[in-house]
């Protein structure tokens, strides 16, 4: 930008193994969001390499990145980001309509995912008929539905009361116990404490592993 380049991330070398539950923490402006975007294949680094399950993803095109996101990454956002006026089932099915599955397979998988987060009795509820915690559970189901290699959660408890937040974190624990790789991005130390490993980012550098 105008010849001035700002290094959001600098000299990061990081490896996350399959089945790990990792928390990435840092204050706002620390570069954790940028790191999350790169891990989530939403962005590519100007320099350096990123591998996901052995596949180099740092030099993929936008289209290829979209396909990688669809198949290998499940996102959970702070704002839930559910489609309004759309049932829980359809919200969960959303990533699958960009895959090549048939409609019946899509429905089956979406139901299964909602079942895993304990919302099998809320299939036809729309987001405005659900509590915040339930909405985030729907969002987790949506992240799970593609059986991704990695679940990337960005402040998943940030918009929830502590009780709902605890429930959500418990779900992440369960999912991790079932073998899912989870990366939790948060500024909250208590939330980060749920993870097996905490990576602290400060001024674009890893401060502590």
């Amino acid at each position: 930008m105008d010849g001035i380049s700002i290094k959001a991330l600098d000299g990061i070398s990081l490896m996350i193994r399959e089945g790990e539950f990792v928390a990435i923490t840092g204050a706002s402006g620390s570069g954790k969001s940028t790191l999350m975007h790169i891990i989530g294949c939403l962005d590519t680094p100007t320099n350096g390499e990123v591998f996901l399950e052995g596949q180099k993803v740092s030099d993929l095109t936008e289209r290829q990145l979209a396909i990688v996101r669809n198949k290998k990454i499940g996102f959970v956002f702070q704002q839930f980001n559910l489609l309004a006026r759309t049932s829980a089932l359809e919200n969960v099915a959303l990533p699958l309509i960009y895959s090549s599955l048939s409609e019946s397979e899509i429905e089956e998988k979406a139901k299964e995912a909602l079942n895993m987060v304990g919302l099998s009795n809320r299939l036809d509820h729309q987001p405005n008929q659900l509590s915040g915690g339930q909405q985030q559970k729907v969002a987790i189901a949506r992240a799970l539905v593609t059986s991704p290699s990695l679940i990337l959660a960005d402040e998943p408890t940030g918009n929830l009361d502590s009780k709902s937040g605890q429930e959500i974190l418990k779900i992440f624990q369960q999912l991790n116990n079932q073998g899912n790789t989870i990366i939790l991005v948060t500024h909250n130390q208590q939330v980060a404490a749920n993870a097996q490993r905490i990576i602290k980012i400060k001024d674009g550098k890893i401060e502590e592993k």
Binding site: R63, A66, R69, N70, F75, N81, L94
Partner: peptide
């Protein structure tokens, strides 16, 4: 815009 962002994050290609 947000819906488009979400769809893209979830794997919709620009063509889609």
């Amino acid at each position: 815009t947000r819906e488009i962002g979400l769809r893209k994050a979830l794997g919709a290609t620009p063509e889609t």
